[in-house]
Nucleic acid binder design. Structure first.
Length: 482
DNA sequence: CTGGGGAAGGGGCCC
DNA sequence: GGGGCCCCTTCCCCA
């Protein structure tokens, strides 16, 4: 015979004990706030605590203390209340952080609930939008001559992402002057299907970008986001006005969230997937959220990085001294890194940010070292290899050939074979060459004349030949047209 | 269509 | 944390 209320009463009793600090043998310090709890309960509820308490099980006589700086006390209160009551106080405002913390603490039940919560919120937003469309369609004499899809404004605080609010309550909030009221525009009104439809349209243009990102494990939506980020003008230029509207509003939304450290950027941590076999990964979450925030990637890595809470740190095991090894989890993919700086670098591959333009050809790079490598290889003929016969060339056995802004080396034999034999000495003035690269690539100034070089870069019949001499600057040049 | 090579891009890690 | 190096993978072009 099973008495169903027993479990409930037992948990209730434990909760009472916790509140009265009875038999609590574990202290949890969250950003300075102390929580008392029972080791057994924590052990049974959280994979993280299971691991932690297993490690400290030798010293059972001493109360265990765990310190967290990766989520807020409020968030932990929600989680602890759930542990002791089975009731999870999710709101649209805390769902992301609770989810992140649950991921950190390896509490899969909470993760599932959060996932469901977010999904159902998205569905509600979808219905809400349809509902609003319906209402608008009936308003023949409406003062709005544009689709209400772009006109509605919503209260910020009343409806953070995923909050379960009756649609009509939200629709009524109108404030044309405050951009902050748009913050849920994309997430609530631009539903997944719409975004994916837009995505598929743009996806046709993606080409190699898409392929490259596929290996990052990014969703199609994320591809689109990156595309926007990479080619904002082009992408937006191809958008309809309404799409552009979405984008700009969504960016504002993100800015708001970033400034307020809430909602989308609030999700943070994850354990290594090796540690947790089945869970709602942050990558998935990132994809889910990115679908509801189309220009999430429009932020620069720096902004993203600084706005991303420290909870990005995840535990990947234990150090020799029993301290948890921390790694930093990318909020957009499954990648983790050891150093924050590496994460900053990694984030650029999601934001599409390319802060290092080549002054010679205009091509932009994510890293200075890539730019340098590109410059040396492409514009300075850095490789001492004959482009044609692949043999090693020296100052004596070869020449640098300039083709537009491109430079490469040919050995003397291949030079003759190519029919390049006329040498001119007066080209320095006409085509100033970049001095030694050194630590900076600032010598190549792309004036009007050289911009034309860029344009003719692929013209096969424009060559400038110069004597190979890497120790000094190129001294002798020749030009020929084949 | 396919394979090879160059260029680009990203990660790990050291200084 | 930034810079830089090395290594590997992927993409793209061309024969």
């Amino acid at each position: 015979m099973e008495i169903s209320s027993h479990q409930f009463h037992l948990l209730q009793q434990l909760n009472e004990q916790r509140k009265q600090d009875l038999f609590c043998d574990c202290c949890i310090l969250v950003e300075g706030k102390v929580f008392k709890a029972h080791r057994n309960v924590l052990f049974a509820s959280s994979g993280y605590f299971k691991m932690l308490l297993s490690q400290s099980s030798k010293e059972t006589s001493q109360p265990t203390t765990a310190t967290f700086e990766v989520f807020s006390p409020d968030t932990f209160t929600v989680i602890l209340d759930f542990v002791y009551s089975g009731k999870l106080s999710l709101t649209g405002q805390n769902v992301i952080e609770v989810m992140s913390a649950a991921s950190y603490l390896q509490m899969t039940d909470i993760l599932s609930v959060c996932k469901t919560f977010i999904k159902s919120s998205l569905e509600i937003n979808e219905k809400e939008k349809d509902h609003y469309f319906t209402i608008s369609a009936k308003r023949v004499n409406s003062r709005f001559d544009r689709s209400p899809f772009y006109r509605s404004r919503r209260k910020v605080k009343s409806n953070p992402i995923g909050s379960h609010v009756i649609p009509d309550q939200k629709v009524g909030m109108v404030n044309e002057n405050s951009w902050t009221n748009n913050r849920n525009h994309s997430s609530s009104q631009m539903n997944v299907q719409q975004q994916e439809t837009q995505l598929s349209k743009r996806g046709q243009k993606l080409g190699s970008v898409k392929k490259r990102q596929r290996r990052l494990g990014l969703s199609q939506s994320l591809d689109f986001l990156k595309y926007i980020s990479n080619k904002p003008d082009e992408a937006r230029g191809s958008c309809s006005a309404s799409e552009t509207n979405h984008i700009s509003q969504s960016k504002e939304q993100i800015q708001f969230d970033t400034e307020n450290n809430t909602a989308h950027t609030g999700y943070r941590c994850d354990q290594e997937s090796k540690v947790i076999p089945k869970k709602w990964s942050v990558a998935q979450l990132g994809q889910e959220l990115s679908r509801t925030s189309p220009v999430f990637m429009d932020l620069k890595a720096d902004e993203l990085y600084t706005s991303t809470p420290t909870i990005l740190g995840v535990m990947s095991g234990w150090n020799e001294d029993d301290l948890p090894k921390m790694r930093f989890k990318c909020p957009f993919c499954t990648h983790t890194v050891k150093r924050r700086a590496d994460m900053k670098r990694h984030l650029r591959c999601h934001t599409g940010e390319r802060p290092y333009p080549c002054e010679a050809c205009g091509k932009k790079f994510t890293r200075l070292e890539h730019l340098r490598s590109h410059f040396q290889t492409i514009h300075q003929a850095g490789k001492l290899i004959c482009r044609k016969c692949k043999n090693h060339v020296t100052d004596l056995t070869g020449h640098v050939v300039q083709q537009g802004t491109r430079r490469y080396r040919l050995c003397n034999e291949c030079l003759v074979e190519a029919g390049i034999d006329r040498i001119h000495d007066d080209l320095d003035a006409e085509h100033p060459l970049p001095i030694s690269l050194g630590n900076k690539i600032s010598e190549w100034h792309l004036d009007e004349e050289h911009r034309s070089d860029v344009e003719m870069e692929d013209e096969p019949d424009k060559f400038v030949i110069q004597q190979v001499d890497d120790s000094t600057d190129e001294t002798e040049e020749s030009e020929t047209k084949s």
